[in-house]
Design a protein around this nucleic acid. Sequence first.
RNA 1: GCCCUCAUCGUCUAGAGGCCUAGGACACGGGCUUUUCACGCCUGUAACUGGGGUUCGAAUCCCCAUGAGGGCACCA
Length: 534
Amino acid sequence: MIRTRFAPSPTGFLHVGGARTALFNWLFARKHGGEFVLRIEDTDQVRSTAESAAGILADLQWLGLDWDRGPVPGKEKNEYFQSMRLEIYNQYLDQLVKSDIAYEAYETPAQLAAMRAKAEKEKRPFRYRRNMPSRATSGQGPSVLRFEMPHEAVEFNDLILGHIAVGGEEHDDIVIRKSDGFPTYHFAVVVDDHLMGISHVLRAQEHLMNTPKHLGLYRALGWQAPVHAHMPLVFNMDNTKMSKRDKSKAARHAAQMMLKQDPTCTMESLATRAGLTPEALAAFLHQKQDDPAITQALAAALKLQLPEIDVQDFRRSGYLSDALLNFIALIGWAPGENREILSREELKALFSLEGIGKTNGRFDRKKLLWMNGEYIRHSDDATLLRAMASFGAVTDYPIKAAPEPMLRNLLGMYRERMGTLAEMAENSRFFFGPPDYDLKAVKKFVGSETDRNYLREITRILSAIPSPWNSEKLNPPLETIITLTEKRGAASQILRVAVSGGAVSPPLLDTLILLGRDVTLQRLGNLERLVQAG
RNA sequence: GCCCUCAUCGUCUAGAGGCCUAGGACACGGGCUUUUCACGCCUGUAACUGGGGUUCGAAUCCCCAUGAGGGCACCA
């Protein structure tokens, strides 16, 4: 029986890298009719939080990655939280101590740091080993338990990378129980993977050097190790690691540019705008900390679009989970035959470890945006309505309040012209209230006296059409407006600016029908007053 | 510094010794369509890191160099 797992640590949001690991494990299990286990690795008492765990579950659910065993959303912690399994770990910890493969170590963190510094100074690698002369064999503080790694080379066959060998002199005796009594990651994964019957460990390549340690533990515990496969990593387009810090980095950079380029912008004014104290802002700008709240506040004040990193960022930006999943699957994996747009079912059917490459990939947001648009264009109303509801649950656009018939109407207008649901939500604002006029567009299309004459003419033509407006009634006058100018359509831009506030909108016919006669004429009047005034 | 891994267009990739004059997709350029913006259609630019082998023949196999990435915690 094939059984895979995804084992996040609840120390933050689920980010795309983690989502990809989850996806590949899920696909592999589903493809082979196996099971997919979700386990929360909360052995870090300091950094783990319940909110983070709940958020990760919610994000996985949003992605549609369902698990056969694991935490139950909304319920108390169960045995798929490592913090609930302490007795189990202790039992095996004892076993290793009894067989003298694990031993107490008394160095304090400071002492260890000094030992490492010394080794570095002497240009030799630092390895903690039981038989090293400098080892403290007793101490007053709390001790940790270390595992005596074998002294021979450890070799294994990685399903993606092939044969991997690490020499015996490279190992060191890892800590398996921290001084707080909790097992370390290394110990807990091994115990849990074995007890939970995990057959395949599919994880990111950053874990490659952990595998020999784990293999050593399996051997010491007398267990058969699962098969390992290490997948390539995902980076930003500039080859930096994708991390939560990218968001604060972007906010910091934008703020600094602003302060530098805009002489009217001072630390004080910017802080006020973002609702921060100047001190907090200064500390943030000097990289003293990466507070997400400050990042958000700054981004809002600067109207800055932060890079999406976490799964929920993508949800808030209006990406469909199917599109995100499809895109993520294609980084480091290819089904061959030049296939690209793949439904969940196709992904499941086509997935194979052989298709996973060895080279790290980059996260190309432009391609994701294209793919999301592709999904939107090919989705039916029901699918999109569901996606909108899910999007609306985490965002706050006026479109949220729209009744379903209007939503369907808007979908018809925007389906072909949006890359994300957020684009529609943003661009359709003028259907829900008077637009803020884009002064550049106003100047460009209604800047001259001739333009204003056209504006009055348009008003005259449209006011002659009685309510309610429909395409039969509206088509002829619209054609008249289009042909008003020598250059076909120049006058229709005036109308577009009047109703939408800018130079871009869905086709005027649909727009005007949805807006209706009263609103249209009212906005035509508003624009006339605006240009009259100045 | 030490250890491990990797290497095809700007990006994701196809490519399992002859099908390669290296294919697809995104991005980018040009054109068509068009009442705006998109969509759609047509079309163009663009890559086997370098050097040695092996072979009749190498993007594909081997070695070296170079470059890139990961790891070296009482984090996971």
